[in-house]
Amino acid sequence: MNDLAKSSKLSHPKSSKRKYRVGYSLFWMYLPACILVIIFIIYPFIDGLKISFTNWNGFSQDSKFIGLEQYKRMLSDSTTWLVVRNTLIYGLGSTILQNIFGLLYALLLNQKIRMRSVTRIIVYLPVIISPLIMGYIWYFFFAYQDGALNDVLMALGFHQVNTLGNMHLNIWIIVLVNTYQYVGIAMIIYLAGLQSISSEYYEAAQIDGASVFQQFKKITFPLIAPAITINMVLNIIGGLKLFDVIISLTGGGPGNASQSMSTYMYSLYFDQQDAGFAATQGILMMFIILILSLLALAFFKRKEVEA
Protein backbone atom coordinates (compact mmCIF):
# COMPACT_ATOMS: atom_id res chain seq x y z
CA MET A 1 0.00 0.00 0.00
CA ASN A 2 2.98 2.29 0.50
CA ASP A 3 4.06 1.64 -3.07
CA LEU A 4 1.31 3.85 -4.33
CA ALA A 5 2.36 6.77 -2.19
CA LYS A 6 5.99 6.24 -3.11
CA SER A 7 5.40 6.03 -6.81
CA SER A 8 3.32 9.17 -6.84
CA LYS A 9 6.03 10.95 -4.89
CA LEU A 10 8.61 9.89 -7.45
CA SER A 11 6.51 11.10 -10.31
CA HIS A 12 6.17 14.56 -8.74
CA PRO A 13 9.67 15.54 -7.65
CA LYS A 14 8.73 19.22 -7.62
CA SER A 15 6.34 18.76 -4.72
CA SER A 16 9.26 18.59 -2.28
CA LYS A 17 9.96 22.28 -2.81
CA ARG A 18 6.46 23.21 -1.75
CA LYS A 19 6.93 21.48 1.59
CA TYR A 20 8.55 24.55 3.05
CA ARG A 21 5.63 26.85 2.40
CA VAL A 22 3.42 27.19 5.48
CA GLY A 23 0.31 27.40 3.31
CA TYR A 24 1.14 24.01 1.87
CA SER A 25 0.49 22.49 5.29
CA LEU A 26 -3.19 23.44 5.00
CA PHE A 27 -3.11 23.90 8.76
CA TRP A 28 -6.46 25.68 8.80
CA MET A 29 -8.09 22.38 7.96
CA TYR A 30 -6.99 20.80 11.22
CA LEU A 31 -7.26 23.94 13.30
CA PRO A 32 -10.80 23.15 14.60
CA ALA A 33 -9.65 19.68 15.68
CA CYS A 34 -6.61 21.15 17.45
CA ILE A 35 -8.72 23.73 19.27
CA LEU A 36 -11.18 21.09 20.53
CA VAL A 37 -8.42 18.78 21.70
CA ILE A 38 -6.51 21.60 23.39
CA ILE A 39 -9.59 22.85 25.26
CA PHE A 40 -10.98 19.48 26.29
CA ILE A 41 -7.93 17.25 26.70
CA ILE A 42 -4.61 19.10 26.88
CA TYR A 43 -5.67 22.09 28.98
CA PRO A 44 -7.53 19.99 31.58
CA PHE A 45 -4.56 17.65 31.73
CA ILE A 46 -2.12 20.48 32.52
CA ASP A 47 -4.59 22.13 34.87
CA GLY A 48 -4.99 18.78 36.64
CA LEU A 49 -1.25 18.69 37.30
CA LYS A 50 -1.54 22.17 38.82
CA ILE A 51 -4.53 21.28 40.99
CA SER A 52 -2.72 18.19 42.30
CA PHE A 53 -0.23 20.54 44.02
CA THR A 54 -2.99 22.39 45.90
CA ASN A 55 -5.45 21.77 48.72
CA TRP A 56 -8.40 23.01 46.65
CA ASN A 57 -11.80 21.68 47.72
CA GLY A 58 -13.48 21.89 44.33
CA PHE A 59 -15.65 25.00 44.72
CA SER A 60 -14.17 27.71 46.95
CA GLN A 61 -11.98 30.52 45.68
CA ASP A 62 -9.04 29.92 47.99
CA SER A 63 -6.70 27.14 47.16
CA LYS A 64 -3.20 27.02 48.51
CA PHE A 65 -0.12 25.65 46.82
CA ILE A 66 1.04 22.83 49.06
CA GLY A 67 3.72 21.25 46.89
CA LEU A 68 3.90 17.49 47.02
CA GLU A 69 1.66 17.15 50.10
CA GLN A 70 -1.15 15.42 48.17
CA TYR A 71 1.32 12.95 46.69
CA LYS A 72 2.75 12.18 50.13
CA ARG A 73 -0.78 11.78 51.43
CA MET A 74 -1.57 9.43 48.57
CA LEU A 75 1.37 7.17 49.41
CA SER A 76 0.26 6.83 53.03
CA ASP A 77 -3.48 6.59 52.25
CA SER A 78 -4.59 2.99 52.72
CA THR A 79 -7.73 3.55 50.63
CA THR A 80 -5.60 4.56 47.65
CA TRP A 81 -3.72 1.29 47.84
CA LEU A 82 -6.91 -0.70 48.20
CA VAL A 83 -8.32 1.10 45.17
CA VAL A 84 -5.14 0.57 43.13
CA ARG A 85 -5.24 -3.12 44.01
CA ASN A 86 -8.91 -3.32 42.95
CA THR A 87 -8.16 -1.49 39.72
CA LEU A 88 -5.34 -3.93 38.92
CA ILE A 89 -7.66 -6.86 39.63
CA TYR A 90 -10.29 -5.35 37.33
CA GLY A 91 -7.72 -4.69 34.61
CA LEU A 92 -5.68 -7.88 34.73
CA GLY A 93 -8.54 -10.19 35.79
CA SER A 94 -10.79 -9.10 32.94
CA THR A 95 -7.88 -9.25 30.49
CA ILE A 96 -7.01 -12.83 31.37
CA LEU A 97 -10.61 -14.07 31.38
CA GLN A 98 -11.63 -12.22 28.22
CA ASN A 99 -8.67 -13.62 26.33
CA ILE A 100 -9.10 -17.19 27.52
CA PHE A 101 -12.82 -17.26 26.81
CA GLY A 102 -12.52 -15.11 23.70
CA LEU A 103 -9.99 -17.51 22.21
CA LEU A 104 -11.91 -20.64 23.23
CA TYR A 105 -15.16 -19.24 21.83
CA ALA A 106 -13.41 -18.24 18.62
CA LEU A 107 -11.82 -21.68 18.18
CA LEU A 108 -15.19 -23.34 18.72
CA LEU A 109 -17.27 -20.94 16.62
CA ASN A 110 -14.75 -21.07 13.78
CA GLN A 111 -15.76 -24.71 13.20
CA LYS A 112 -18.43 -25.48 10.67
CA ILE A 113 -21.19 -26.26 13.13
CA ARG A 114 -24.87 -25.44 13.10
CA MET A 115 -26.19 -22.32 14.82
CA ARG A 116 -22.70 -20.86 15.20
CA SER A 117 -23.72 -17.46 13.87
CA VAL A 118 -26.59 -17.29 16.37
CA THR A 119 -24.17 -17.99 19.22
CA ARG A 120 -21.74 -15.39 17.90
CA ILE A 121 -24.48 -12.75 17.84
CA ILE A 122 -25.66 -13.61 21.35
CA VAL A 123 -22.11 -13.47 22.72
CA TYR A 124 -21.50 -10.16 20.96
CA LEU A 125 -24.80 -8.46 21.87
CA PRO A 126 -23.73 -7.05 25.29
CA VAL A 127 -20.90 -5.10 23.62
CA ILE A 128 -23.38 -2.59 22.21
CA ILE A 129 -25.31 -2.17 25.47
CA SER A 130 -24.46 0.53 28.00
CA PRO A 131 -22.21 -0.98 30.70
CA LEU A 132 -24.27 0.89 33.30
CA ILE A 133 -27.46 -0.89 32.19
CA MET A 134 -25.61 -4.19 31.82
CA GLY A 135 -24.64 -3.74 35.47
CA TYR A 136 -28.30 -3.31 36.47
CA ILE A 137 -29.28 -6.38 34.48
CA TRP A 138 -26.69 -8.42 36.37
CA TYR A 139 -27.80 -6.82 39.61
CA PHE A 140 -31.15 -8.56 39.10
CA PHE A 141 -29.21 -11.81 38.88
CA PHE A 142 -26.92 -11.33 41.88
CA ALA A 143 -29.10 -9.26 44.22
CA TYR A 144 -29.40 -10.57 47.79
CA GLN A 145 -33.16 -10.02 47.93
CA ASP A 146 -34.94 -12.06 45.24
CA GLY A 147 -31.88 -12.29 43.01
CA ALA A 148 -32.02 -14.99 40.35
CA LEU A 149 -28.93 -16.70 41.75
CA ASN A 150 -30.39 -16.95 45.24
CA ASP A 151 -33.63 -18.33 43.80
CA VAL A 152 -31.63 -21.24 42.45
CA LEU A 153 -29.57 -21.71 45.62
CA MET A 154 -32.66 -21.75 47.81
CA ALA A 155 -34.51 -24.13 45.52
CA LEU A 156 -31.53 -26.48 45.88
CA GLY A 157 -31.66 -26.18 49.66
CA PHE A 158 -28.66 -23.85 50.16
CA HIS A 159 -28.56 -20.56 52.04
CA GLN A 160 -28.84 -17.28 50.16
CA VAL A 161 -25.49 -15.63 49.50
CA ASN A 162 -24.85 -11.91 49.58
CA THR A 163 -22.50 -11.87 46.60
CA LEU A 164 -22.58 -8.11 46.02
CA GLY A 165 -22.31 -7.16 49.68
CA ASN A 166 -19.33 -9.43 50.32
CA MET A 167 -16.16 -7.39 49.99
CA HIS A 168 -14.01 -10.35 49.01
CA LEU A 169 -16.41 -11.70 46.45
CA ASN A 170 -17.91 -8.65 44.77
CA ILE A 171 -14.74 -7.46 43.03
CA TRP A 172 -14.62 -10.83 41.26
CA ILE A 173 -18.29 -10.55 40.34
CA ILE A 174 -17.45 -7.20 38.74
CA VAL A 175 -14.57 -8.84 36.83
CA LEU A 176 -16.96 -11.54 35.68
CA VAL A 177 -19.64 -9.09 34.52
CA ASN A 178 -17.08 -6.98 32.66
CA THR A 179 -15.73 -10.15 31.03
CA TYR A 180 -19.24 -11.24 30.05
CA GLN A 181 -19.89 -7.86 28.47
CA TYR A 182 -16.74 -7.54 26.38
CA VAL A 183 -15.69 -11.13 25.64
CA GLY A 184 -17.48 -10.65 22.29
CA ILE A 185 -14.88 -8.15 21.10
CA ALA A 186 -12.02 -10.51 21.98
CA MET A 187 -13.86 -13.34 20.24
CA ILE A 188 -14.39 -11.34 17.03
CA ILE A 189 -10.75 -10.24 16.91
CA TYR A 190 -9.58 -13.84 17.41
CA LEU A 191 -12.05 -15.07 14.79
CA ALA A 192 -10.64 -12.57 12.29
CA GLY A 193 -7.15 -13.81 13.18
CA LEU A 194 -8.12 -17.47 12.76
CA GLN A 195 -9.85 -16.86 9.44
CA SER A 196 -6.73 -15.22 8.02
CA ILE A 197 -4.73 -18.46 8.49
CA SER A 198 -4.56 -20.46 5.29
CA SER A 199 -5.97 -23.98 5.61
CA GLU A 200 -2.96 -25.29 3.66
CA TYR A 201 -0.81 -25.08 6.79
CA TYR A 202 -3.13 -27.43 8.62
CA GLU A 203 -3.34 -29.80 5.67
CA ALA A 204 0.44 -29.98 5.48
CA ALA A 205 0.69 -30.53 9.25
CA GLN A 206 -1.88 -33.33 9.08
CA ILE A 207 0.12 -35.07 6.35
CA ASP A 208 3.15 -34.85 8.61
CA GLY A 209 1.11 -36.45 11.37
CA ALA A 210 0.93 -33.48 13.74
CA SER A 211 -1.61 -33.76 16.57
CA VAL A 212 -4.37 -31.21 17.08
CA PHE A 213 -2.47 -29.75 20.02
CA GLN A 214 0.78 -29.53 18.04
CA GLN A 215 -1.08 -27.79 15.23
CA PHE A 216 -2.44 -25.25 17.68
CA LYS A 217 0.98 -24.66 19.25
CA LYS A 218 2.99 -24.47 16.04
CA ILE A 219 0.54 -22.90 13.58
CA THR A 220 -2.48 -21.28 15.20
CA PHE A 221 -0.82 -19.67 18.18
CA PRO A 222 2.07 -17.92 16.38
CA LEU A 223 -0.20 -16.72 13.59
CA ILE A 224 -2.79 -15.15 15.87
CA ALA A 225 -0.10 -13.39 17.93
CA PRO A 226 -1.08 -9.94 16.58
CA ALA A 227 -4.67 -10.56 17.72
CA ILE A 228 -3.36 -11.43 21.18
CA THR A 229 -1.44 -8.16 21.38
CA ILE A 230 -4.46 -6.12 20.38
CA ASN A 231 -6.74 -7.91 22.81
CA MET A 232 -4.32 -7.64 25.71
CA VAL A 233 -3.77 -3.90 25.34
CA LEU A 234 -7.43 -3.19 24.64
CA ASN A 235 -8.70 -5.20 27.60
CA ILE A 236 -6.13 -3.85 30.04
CA ILE A 237 -7.07 -0.27 29.22
CA GLY A 238 -10.79 -1.07 29.36
CA GLY A 239 -10.49 -2.90 32.68
CA LEU A 240 -8.36 -0.23 34.36
CA LYS A 241 -10.88 2.48 33.44
CA LEU A 242 -13.85 0.51 34.79
CA PHE A 243 -16.55 2.83 36.14
CA ASP A 244 -20.17 2.29 35.04
CA VAL A 245 -20.51 -1.36 35.96
CA ILE A 246 -19.16 -0.72 39.48
CA ILE A 247 -21.63 2.10 39.99
CA SER A 248 -24.58 -0.07 39.05
CA LEU A 249 -23.50 -3.29 40.79
CA THR A 250 -22.03 -2.19 44.13
CA GLY A 251 -21.69 1.60 44.05
CA GLY A 252 -18.07 1.00 45.13
CA GLY A 253 -19.13 -0.55 48.41
CA PRO A 254 -19.39 -1.89 50.97
CA GLY A 255 -17.38 1.05 52.26
CA ASN A 256 -14.69 1.46 49.63
CA ALA A 257 -14.22 -2.28 49.13
CA SER A 258 -14.99 -2.44 45.40
CA GLN A 259 -14.01 1.10 44.46
CA SER A 260 -11.87 1.49 41.31
CA MET A 261 -9.64 4.48 40.66
CA SER A 262 -12.34 6.13 38.51
CA THR A 263 -15.10 5.68 41.06
CA TYR A 264 -12.82 6.71 43.94
CA MET A 265 -11.85 9.86 42.08
CA TYR A 266 -15.52 10.58 41.50
CA SER A 267 -16.43 10.18 45.17
CA LEU A 268 -13.41 12.20 46.35
CA TYR A 269 -14.47 15.09 44.18
CA PHE A 270 -18.25 15.08 44.46
CA ASP A 271 -18.91 13.48 47.84
CA GLN A 272 -15.87 14.52 49.87
CA GLN A 273 -15.02 17.88 48.25
CA ASP A 274 -11.39 16.86 48.06
CA ALA A 275 -10.58 18.11 44.56
CA GLY A 276 -6.83 18.44 45.04
CA PHE A 277 -6.57 14.84 46.14
CA ALA A 278 -8.94 13.68 43.38
CA ALA A 279 -6.71 15.37 40.78
CA THR A 280 -3.70 13.58 42.26
CA GLN A 281 -5.54 10.27 41.88
CA GLY A 282 -6.21 11.17 38.25
CA ILE A 283 -2.48 11.63 37.61
CA LEU A 284 -1.71 8.30 39.31
CA MET A 285 -4.38 6.57 37.24
CA MET A 286 -2.98 7.94 34.03
CA PHE A 287 0.49 6.71 34.87
CA ILE A 288 -0.73 3.24 35.79
CA ILE A 289 -2.71 2.89 32.56
CA LEU A 290 0.16 4.22 30.48
CA ILE A 291 2.82 2.01 32.04
CA LEU A 292 0.74 -1.17 31.96
CA SER A 293 -0.45 -0.73 28.39
CA LEU A 294 3.06 0.06 27.17
CA LEU A 295 4.41 -2.98 29.06
CA ALA A 296 1.75 -5.20 27.53
CA LEU A 297 2.46 -3.79 24.08
CA ALA A 298 6.22 -4.28 24.43
CA PHE A 299 5.88 -7.77 25.89
CA PHE A 300 3.49 -9.14 23.32
CA LYS A 301 5.11 -7.35 20.39
CA ARG A 302 8.35 -9.12 21.26
CA LYS A 303 6.55 -12.44 21.32
CA GLU A 304 5.19 -11.67 17.86
CA VAL A 305 8.67 -11.12 16.45
CA GLU A 306 9.94 -14.33 18.00
CA ALA A 307 7.03 -16.25 16.57
Partner: peptide, 28 residues
Protein backbone atom coordinates in the same frame (compact mmCIF):
# COMPACT_ATOMS: atom_id res chain seq x y z
CA UNK B 1 0.90 17.15 3.08
CA UNK B 2 3.84 15.71 4.92
CA UNK B 3 5.44 18.89 6.15
CA UNK B 4 7.37 19.03 9.40
CA UNK B 5 4.51 20.88 11.10
CA UNK B 6 1.94 18.33 9.97
CA UNK B 7 4.08 15.39 11.05
CA UNK B 8 4.41 16.87 14.55
CA UNK B 9 0.69 17.58 14.80
CA UNK B 10 -0.18 14.07 13.65
CA UNK B 11 2.16 12.48 16.20
CA UNK B 12 0.59 14.65 18.91
CA UNK B 13 -2.89 13.45 18.00
CA UNK B 14 -1.77 9.83 18.07
CA UNK B 15 0.01 10.31 21.41
CA UNK B 16 -3.12 11.83 22.98
CA UNK B 17 -4.96 8.58 22.27
CA UNK B 18 -3.23 6.95 25.23
CA UNK B 19 -4.51 9.54 27.73
CA UNK B 20 -7.81 8.32 29.13
CA UNK B 21 -9.96 11.48 29.04
CA UNK B 22 -11.54 10.79 32.41
CA UNK B 23 -8.28 11.08 34.34
CA UNK B 24 -8.59 14.85 33.92
CA UNK B 25 -12.10 14.86 35.35
CA UNK B 26 -11.49 17.40 38.12
CA UNK B 27 -10.09 20.22 35.96
CA UNK B 28 -12.48 19.40 33.12
Amino acid sequence: RETKLNKIVYVCFVAIMVIPPLTALVPL
